[in-house]
């Protein structure tokens, strides 16, 4: 075999991807970071100075603090709800007969393929002034006043849980699939009740799936745009919609860039430390 040729082959093979990514991912990301270090003047535009003022403003201003707080609170709440409803659903799916299971997997996972805009529109229709909520409230005799969850934190939470819970289900489902069903039988035969088997044998083995599902849901909620933009609107801004407004309404790009960089850093730090945690905790136990 040609020594040099073989040694360089993997670099040739990965070269197209690397070149493409350096030019079209590396450069834009770097430029955004540099942009966030410039200041902005409403009359003359982007300045050529170097400053951390944008970061200081975002981190110090109570307006942005509130938005960041709301975003991470929302992410946490959505994650917790997804665990609470997604884990049992994945377990139920895993216990179904294969015919029902394939139907319901389609129902539960299928929405992932449908555009987030469409799914959020559904909630907007349900939440809106003449939506289902109002009809239910009127039918139950709470008066004719329209009930709306549009532009509320609750509404955003419900819609985001709907958008993201399939990720939790699929992640838990994948780790349930790896469990040796005989290990549950072994639990019963050793005297454990059904509940004990669930708690002591099944759930701990599903833990890697629950944790990785959580990090996916958390990260995607923290950076979600479409759903908060449509359901939350201007009244319930989150980080992504705030950055959008800085870029496309206020036109203060450097400030928007600083928000984006902070969002990215928070995202990466949380994902990386979570992965490290999972690795440390489970390296000895699972493959």
């Amino acid at each position: 075999m040609g020594g040099v040729n073989t040694r360089l082959a993997p670099y040739f093979l990965t070269a197209p991807g690397i070149v493409f990514f350096v030019a079209l991912l590396g450069a834009p990301m770097l430029m955004t970071f540099l942009l966030s270090l410039h200041s902005y003047d409403f009359n003359t535009g982007i300045q050529s100075d170097w400053t951390f003022a944008n970061y200081i403003e975002v981190l110090g201003d109570s307006y942005f603090q509130k938005i960041f707080g709301r975003t991470f609170g929302l992410a946490l709440l959505v994650t917790v709800i997804c665990v609470l409803i997604g884990v049992p659903e994945a377990y139920i799916l895993s216990k179904m007969s294969s015919r029902w299971r394939s139907i319901f997997l389609l129902v539960v996972l299928g929405p992932l393929l449908i555009s987030v805009v469409v799914r959020t529109l559904g909630w907007a229709l349900l939440f809106g002034g003449k939506g289902l909520l109002t009809m239910i409230s009127q039918a139950l005799g709470f008066g004719d006043a329209p009930v709306s969850l549009m532009f509320t934190f609750t509404g955003m939470t419900i819609a985001l849980v709907h958008v993201l819970v399939p990720f939790m289900v699929i992640s838990v489902w994948a780790s349930l699939q790896k469990i040796d069903p005989q290990s549950e039988d072994a639990g019963y035969c050793l005297g454990a009740s059904k509940l004990t088997v669930l708690r002591r044998i099944t759930l701990p083995q599903a833990m890697p799936g629950i944790l990785s599902g959580s990090i996916i849901v958390f990260a995607l909620t923290a950076s979600a745009f479409a759903t908060p933009a449509i359901i939350g609107g201007r009244r319930m801004k989150v980080v992504a919609t705030a950055a959008y407004d800085e870029y496309l309404s206020t036109l203060n790009w450097p400030l928007g860039a600083a928000i984006a960089v902070l969002l990215l850093v928070a995202n990466v730090v949380i994902i990386a430390s979570y992965n490290k945690l999972i690795e440390r905790r489970f390296a000895k136990v699972f493959e």
Partner: peptide, 20 residues
């Protein structure tokens, strides 16, 4: 009698050890 009240010892083909 359900399995968890029989108290029999069983070794499974896959061993079915609790990996965690």
């Amino acid at each position: 009698t359900p399995a968890n009240k029989r108290g029999l010892g069983i070794v499974f083909q896959s061993y079915a050890l609790f990996p965690h």
